[in-house]
Structures are given as structure tokens and as C-alpha cells.
Nucleic acid binder design. Structure first.
Length: 825
RNA sequence: GCCCGGGUGGUGGAACCGGUAGACACAAGGGACUUAAAAUCCCUCGGGUUAUCCCGUGCGGGUUCGACUCCCGCCCCGGGCACCA
């Protein structure tokens, strides 16, 4: 064999051979065990970067390992093709978004192919291709038919100078990223998907996701934000209008001293219209224009509000309290109105103190005597109800859960209800580079769905991209003006496109039959491959993408289109590769590409190095120091195989009597197989590689000590195992070495090595002896040593005996096979 | 601000269920080989006036025979917060 490890030639050679052999094609084989291994597809923002490599390494190692275990593996790749950056590029440099995107896809694909990932490229898909988004539109129409897609007014970021809608990302400190004009909130009629209808199921079904990280489930639970409470109907004194509020604390109803509306609440306009307060409201809204919701509801944010001049009537006691608007009340949560109980809610308390509004204590802490004048903060803990008419003396918990809700329901003043923090999913984007919403607006027929047979509604190509003004679709007469599918009269197309999260909410299903042009997916293929057994992706997707995908899956099941209601059985959230403390991304301008490493080190080294950097879940600060180590290791493996092969050609007689060495070899081999297999199963790829390095070091020692011992079954087994174990991590070099060892093509189709538990067990172990928890002695003993024997050996050791002189042994703790701790006084 | 993670040598990390802190590497230093360099191989490598001792896993407490690991309170860093994906 070649003396030097020439990675360039090797990698080229095998990349071609694998392609010719179509090594990673996947097919349904009913009855055979399958695993669907999926890594979140990338947004093609440019060439591959180190963050991609870190991602896709994980899925590839797992897919390769599972195939070798005899499993039928689906491991596809595709492109999340729609998105804002393509459109920004079009505006800035005149490149058409399609061109920009497809060019980037080509670049990214080339990078991934050089890394030797084992994708079934026949299943490649792109969400921006008409043969994909046709089915996104088709699915939208199914949602629409079910009443799960609807139009409503919603606020959007609006730059008055550019006369265009801005994404949150384009709003910097409340100002337009381009022209620095103060961004305002403008109400637009927009499309929503009714995810709130699935809130309860999305919440409850998380109990059936034991394969998900607890942190992600917690984030999703908090995001859905279920709270039980009551809806209570207040009235406007002046007009008699009903103003329902949601509260989780009905037990504090008697402590209401004012009433709050969200500043955007239409009722605030109505109540102040034509009054001296009308101007105050406008000034107040002006003040809040550039302030995000996050800053408005921050606990530490200054409370701000104005009086509307009107009053609310509290149903439980008939009291009339002033109606204010406040910055911390959001239109999007609950009913956009709240009852204010300053004595028992911190924000209400701060508001009351600031504006001199009354505070009334209605919950007394156990044994305490709260005084509304003296209080410095709200009392939010349970206690005993006071100043609450017939409920005086009732425990607040009982009052909250039973007594008061019962009372409200009896009187018809309110009812028990459940409120969610989760809001419906706004999918409208006033942009070009997305899936057109397949709806036509007709003056006669109203909102009309585009018939399935007319799909896809294609994006027009000859459009102009401008810095300001309405979106290219709105400006495109060709796109916009059409005929009504219902009456055949003139009509206008919906010009909004969909949020790209819609595209990525079902792509994992499309992979089952990506080239199907008759349906969104083939039920047979879906039945075999889905759900995804192992989903892998960045922690930054913990909530939105994963929640939207779960929602989609449930709707598809209800539509009878799929037979499962959770898309991802197991989830691995890996950390991010960060640089300079921020995640690596093109928009941050801090990307490192693999290209620069291919020349000097090769793909195997880069794969190995990045996997060796740390555990998948941890964030990794990028630094290339250490890549030499990975490269050196591959050279070492190469030379070891070379050395071994030269021993074989010497045709030495195997030294069968050197049984100690053979036993040592067998132990090394089998304990390493065990360790590497277990580590891969728990995604500890970094320690799996460390184990292979230790193994290599051990084999080097052995081959120095007794080269002849390698011309034996144990020797052959050791070298073959080394290559077989390393193959999922470094696919190119191992394929070459496998060939050198006389193995059959391909190493990636060889069964994963099995270990013999007996051979993998160490014969001698180091037992630790502690005195009062401090290590005082280490003694080598047989691994099967009984506990009583461990204790005896420990107490017998000279050093321990000396330490125990004149002391009382009060206790001896023995951890079998590990340590003995002697407790003395 | 709220929710979710994380913090271990000069560096990346290991320690899997409460039981030997620092595996495996990188960097650094010393040595061998070489005319020389590269490559390779060997040795040292948390700190402490150099060891059978003491200290040490962000900081302060606690539980335990024993804590990087569990509990309480802080500090710092990262992610998400609904139009970046």
C-alpha cells in the first residue's frame, strides 16, 4: 500500500465509486425494520459553513451506524428555499431571488457532498420548487376547508418612509434597519392558521414524547401557557357595553379598584371619542409606537397609562371603577382587558402607586395584618379572603378554585374558562419569495379558494424588486388580476405569501415520496417511513418550528392523510457553533467554511475534528486549534495498517504460546467495540472517537512489543475492527484501508462488529480506599472481588492501618467493584 | 424582563445513576532521531517553597460517609420571545 496517507486521491476516488454504486439509495421494504434519521434541512444562505458540518455530521454518523446494524435507513437532504435574505439580495443587488437561491443551493450541496454524507440524493427536495410548493398550497386549502385558515386584522411593523412591512429582524431598536425611520404598528388584514384550536392536544401529547429533551418540552409548555381561571363580564357604566376579562384570581374580585384596556383596544377609541381624553390616548399611543411588546410587559419596565374618562362596573359589588389603558396590557393575550387588583398583583400595584389609584386588601396572609397604606409590594401568596362580602374568611385557594367561580356561574356574571398564551399563527407575509396563498378575492363571490386542479399558483418571474413600497406581487398585474374560479368574472389574487415555517412544517413527510406528482405524499411510503425516528437540529428551533410541525401533523391526521399525530419520536437538540459569542450565520458575517480545510486536511479530518470538539448538545466556540490532532490520528491509523500488512508479508509463524498478548489484544478489541457502540447510541461521538484513539495507541504498543502476535486471529480481528469502528466517522480513509485489508466493498455495508462481553471485561481493577471520603490508597484486585473481600483488603493495607491507629472505625461503606470508604472519628 | 440551557487545567473537553476530578486531544516545555528541517518517537504538563500533605469543577451556603453531579441564594455567558431561519 501507499506509504503516505494521500487523502486527496482517496476522497476523490471513493466519492466517485459510491456515486456509481448508488450506495445510499433507500427503498421501502415492508416488514423490515426501518429508521428515519433526519437533520433539519438548511436555509441556503451561501456555501456550507462549520455550523452545517457540526449538524450534518451527527445524522450521518447515526445513519451509517444504523445501516451497519442491519436497519433500513432513510436519510434524506433538501433545502428550505424560501426566505427573506433572497429577497433582500434582490433588492440590494438586483439578483433574482430564484437565481440567488438556486446558486446557493448548488454551493451548499457541493460542500455537503465533499464531506461524504450518506444522503439518498434521489430524494432531494426544495421548498421553493413549484413541484413542492404546489403541495404546500394544496395543504393550505385543506386547512381552509376545515376552517383552520382564516383572515383577520393584525398588527405588522410598518415603515412609513419605505411604505413597506418589516420583519422583526429588520427593526433595530424600534427603527427601520434601512432608513432609520421610527417603525409603527399598522393593522393589516392577514391570514392565520388556527393553532389555538390544537393548544390542548399540543400540550397533552407532550406526555407521549419521552424521547424529547425535557428542556424543550418545558419551553413548549410555557409557550402554550395554559392557565385556568374565569371569564368575568364587567360593563361600561356610561354605555352599558360588556367588557369580558380573563382572570386566574377570581378570589380577588372584591379588590378591583380600576380597570385596564390594552392601548390598541378599539373600545379605548370608542370611550374617548369626542372627549377631552381622546388626545391623551393619541399621545400615549405615540409614546408606545417604537416599543416592542417584550419591553412593554417587562416586569421592570416603567408602568405607563392614561385615564379614558369612562368607568367600569364590577358585577360582584356594583362598584364603579375608572377605566385606564396601560402599556403592560396586550391586545393579543386574553381579551385585551384586565381587572386591576393592586393589592395582589405587582404590576397593578406599581401602576396604582404611580397614578395615586386606591389599593384595597382582600387577601390577608396567615397571621399577618396587611395595611394598604404601608404595603411596599403586592401580596400574591395565598391567604384568607377579607372585604369580600359573603366570602370573608374563605381561604383564597378555595375561593379561587371553587367558591367564587361557582358564585359567578350561578349569577351569570362569569364562567370557568381556560386561557392560553399561545396565539394563532400569522402566516401572511407581504413579500415575494414565498408560497403564494392560493386564494382569489372576487367582488361577487368574496374569498374563493383556487381549485386544486389550478395548482400551483406560480410566482411570476418578471417582477421588479424595489427598496420601498408594496411587494412585487402586489405590483404585478400579471399575477394579481385573474378571473374568479367561482363566477368567471374579474377578480384579484391574494398577494400575500406564506411564512416559511409553513414549508418546513411538512417537508419531513414529503421525503417519503419526494417525486410524487399526483399527491402531496404517497400513503404507502408514509406508512412505512414515518414518523421520523430521530430528528436532529439546533436548539434555536425548540419552540416554533417544532411546535408548528407538531400542529401540522395533528391536522393531517384529523384530515385522514397520515396515521400518526406526533412527527418526531426522538429529538436531539445540538448546540450551536458560535464565533465571537454569537451563532455562526451569514447574516452575522461570522462564517467559517469547510473549503479552506479540504485542501490541507481533507473531509475525514474535518468531520473527525468537529465531532471530537465536544458533545452534540453543547455550544462550541469555534477554534481550529486541534485540527492537527485529528489529522495526525488518521495518519497514525494509516501507518498502523501499513505496519500490520508488512508483518503479514513476512509470513512469520504466529506465536501461539504468547497467550497473554493475545488475551490483551482481544480485551482491547472487545472493550473498544463495547465502548464505541454504547457511545454512539447515546450520541457521545466525542468519547467514541477518544476510545478509538486509545485503542489505536494500545495497538501501537502491542505491535511494538510483539509484532508476531498480530499474525493471528486476534491480530486480524484487531485491525479489521479498528477500520470497521472508525468507518462512520471517517468514511473515506476507512474505505481505502478496508480495501487494503482485503475486505469486500463496501466497508459501509459491513455488519457492525459485535463484542464478546466476557472478552470485554477487565480482569484486574483498581480499587480505591478512602478514609473519611478522602482517597488514601489504591489497590489492584481481581474484578470479580466480593464486597467483604474488598473491605478486608482495604483494612489490611499497611497505609490504611497506619491511618487508623488509635481511631474508632464508625462505619465502612463498600461500593462493589469501585471503592471502600472508612469513616473514623 | 420572562422561559430554557450552560460555566471543570493555558485550550477543546472526560468523569454515563452521588463514589478515583482532569480520560482523549490541542498548545507549551524538555529530550531522541537528523548535516538541518519536517515527520515520527519518548518524557513533563491544575495550583501550592515539590509531598504518604493541603487546596481546587463560576461565587456563597446546605444535604451526605462521600458533591463537578442533589437543594437554596447569587454572578456571568448563550438560545428563544411569535415577520431571521
Amino acid at each position: 500500500m501507499e506509504e503516505r496517507y494521500d487523502f486527496k486521491t482517496i476522497e476523490e476516488k471513493w466519492r466517485r465509486r459510491w456515486q456509481e454504486a448508488d450506495l445510499y439509495a433507500s427503498h421501502e421494504e415492508p416488514g423490515r425494520e426501518k429508521k428515519y434519521v433526519l437533520v433539519m434541512f438548511p436555509y441556503p444562505s451561501g456555501p456550507a459553513h462549520i455550523g452545517h458540518v457540526a449538524n450534518y455530521n451527527l445524522g450521518d454518523v447515526l445513519a451509517r451506524y444504523l445501516r451497519r446494524k442491519g436497519v433500513n435507513v432513510l436519510h434524506p437532504m433538501g433545502w428550505d428555499g424560501f426566505g427573506l435574505p433572497a429577497e433582500n439580495a434582490a433588492i440590494r443587488s438586483g439578483v433574482h431571488p430564484a437565481r440567488y437561491t438556486w446558486d446557493n443551493i448548488a454551493l451548499l450541496k457541493e460542500g455537503l457532498q465533499r464531506l461524504g454524507y450518506s444522503y439518498d440524493w434521489d430524494r432531494e427536495l426544495a421548498t421553493c420548487a413549484p413541484d413542492y410548493y404546489r403541495w404546500t398550497q394544496w395543504l393550505f386549502l385543506r386547512f381552509y376547508e376545515k376552517g383552520l385558515a382564516y383572515k383577520a386584522l393584525a398588527r405588522a411593523n410598518w415603515c412609513p418612509s419605505c411604505r413597506t412591512v418589516l420583519a422583526n429582524e429588520q427593526v433595530i431598536n424600534g427603527h427601520c434597519e434601512r432608513c432609520e425611520t421610527l417603525v409603527v404598528q399598522k393593522a393589516l388584514s392577514q391570514w392565520f392558521l388556527r393553532i389555538t384550536a390544537y393548544a390542548e392536544r399540543l400540550l397533552a401529547d407532550m406526555d407521549r414524547l419521552p424521547g424529547w429533551p425535557e428542556g424543550v418540552l418545558t419551553m413548549q409548555r410555557n409557550w402554550i401557557g395554559r392557565s385556568e381561571g374565569c371569564e368575568v363580564v364587567f360593563h361600561v357604566k356610561e354605555t352599558g357595553q360588556e367588557m369580558p376579562i380573563f382572570t386566574t384570581r377570581p378570589d380577588t374580585l372584591w379588590g378591583v379598584t380600576f380597570f385596564l384596556l390594552a392601548p390598541e383596544h378599539p373600545l379605548a377609541d370608542e370611550l374617548t371619542r369626542g372627549t377631552p381624553y381622546e388626545k391623551d390616548l393619541q399621545t400615549f399611543r405615540e409614546r408606545l409606537r417604537g416599543v416592542s411588546d417584550i419591553d412593554r410587559i417587562a416586569m421592570e419596565a416603567e408602568k405607563d397609562g392614561i385615564f379614558t374618562g369612562a368607568h367600569a362596573v364590577n358585577p360582584v359589588n356594583g362598584e364603579e371603577v375608572p377605566i385606564w389603558t396601560a402599556n403592560f396590557v396586550l391586545m393579543e393575550y386574553g381579551t385585551g382587558a384586565v381587572m386591576a387588583v393592586p393589592a395582589h398583583d405587582q404590576r397593578d400595584f406599581e401602576f396604582a402607586r404611580k397614578y395615586g389609584l386606591p389599593i384595597r386588601v382582600v387577601i390577608q396572609p396567615p397571621g399577618g395584618e396587611l395595611d394598604q397604606e404601608e404595603m411596599t409590594e403586592a401580596y400574591v401568596e395565598p391567604g384568607s379572603m377579607v372585604n369580600s362580602a359573603r366570602f370573608d374568611g374563605t381561604g383564597s385557594e378555595a375561593g379561587k378554585l371553587e367558591a367564587v367561580p361557582d358564585y359567578l356561574e350561578e349569577r351569570g356574571w362569569g364562567r370557568r374558562t381556560v386561557n392560553y398564551r399561545l396565539r394563532d399563527w400569522l402566516i401572511s407575509r407581504q413579500r415575494y419569495w414565498g408560497v403564494p396563498i392560493p386564494i382569489v378575492n372576487c367582488e361577487k363571490c368574496g374569498t374563493v379558494a383556487v381549485p386544486d386542479s389550478d395548482l400551483p399558483v406560480l410566482l411570476p418571474e418578471g417582477v421588479r424588486f424595489e427598496f420601498e413600497g408594496p411587494s412585487p406581487l402586489e405590483r404585478s398585474d400579471e399575477f394579481r388580476y385573474t378571473t374568479c374560479p367561482g363566477c368567471g368574472g374579474p377578480a384579484e389574487r391574494e398577494t400575500d405569501t406564506m411564512d416559511t415555517f409553513v414549508d418546513s412544517s411538512w417537508y419531513y413527510i414529503r421525503y417519503a415520496s419526494p417525486n410524487d406528482d399526483r399527491e402531496a405524499f404517497d400513503p404507502e411510503a408514509v406508512r412505512y417511513w414515518l414518523p421520523v425516528d430521530q430528528y436532529i437540529g439546533g436548539i434555536e428551533h425548540a419552540i416554533m418550528h417544532l411546535l408548528y410541525s407538531r400542529f401540522f401533523t395533528k391536522v393531517l391526521m384529523d384530515l385522514g392523510l397520515v396515521e400518526f399525530d406526533e412527527p418526531f419520536t426522538n429529538l436531539l437538540c445540538q448546540g450551536m457553533v458560535v464565533m465571537g459569542g454569537a451563532k455562526m450565520s451569514k447574516s452575522k458575517g461570522n462564517i467559517i467554511t469547510p473549503d479552506q480545510f479540504f485542501e490541507a486536511y481533507g473531509a475525514d479530518t474535518l468531520r473527525l475534528f468537529i465531532l471530537f470538539l465536544g458533545p452534540p448538545e453543547a455550544d462550541k466556540e469555534w477554534s481550529e486549534s486541534g485540527i492537527d490532532g485529528a489529522h495526525r490520528f488518521l495518519h497514525r491509523v494509516w501507518r498502523l495498517v501499513d505496519r500490520y500488512l508488512s508483518i503479514l508479508t513476512l509470513k512469520t509463524q504466529p506465536v501461539l504460546e504468547d497467550s497473554e498478548m493475545l488475551k490483551r489484544l482481544a480485551f482491547l478489541t472487545h472493550s473498544t467495540i463495547k465502548k464505541v457502540s454504547e457511545d454512539i447510541e447515546r450520541f457521545a461521538f466525542n468519547t467514541a472517537i477518544a476510545a478509538i484513539m486509545e485503542y489505536t495507541n494500545g495497538l501501537y504498543k502491542a505491535i511494538e512489543d510483539s509484532p508476531d502476535a498480530f499474525n493471528t486471529f486476534e491480530g486480524h480481528d484487531a485491525l479489521r475492527s479498528l477500520v470497521l469502528l472508525l468507518a462512520p466517522f471517517a468514511p473515506f480513509i476507512t474505505e481505502e484501508l478496508w480495501e487494503e485489508l482485503g475486505g469486500e466493498f463496501s466497508v459501509h455495508q459491513q455488519p457492525w462488529p459485535e463484542y464478546d462481553a466476557e472478552l470485554a471485561r477487565a480482569e484486574r481493577i483498581t480499587m480505591v480506599v478512602q478514609v473519611n471520603g478522602k482517597v488514601r490508597e489504591r489497590i489492584e484486585v481481581d474484578s470479580g472481588i466480593p464486597s467483604e473481600e474488598m473491605e478486608r483488603v482495604a483494612l489490611d493495607s499497611a497505609r490504611i492501618r497506619k491511618l487508623l491507629e488509635g481511631k474508632d472505625v464508625s462505619k465502612v461503606i463498600v461500593v462493589p467493584g469501585k471503592l471502600v470508604n472508612i469513616v473514623i472519628r
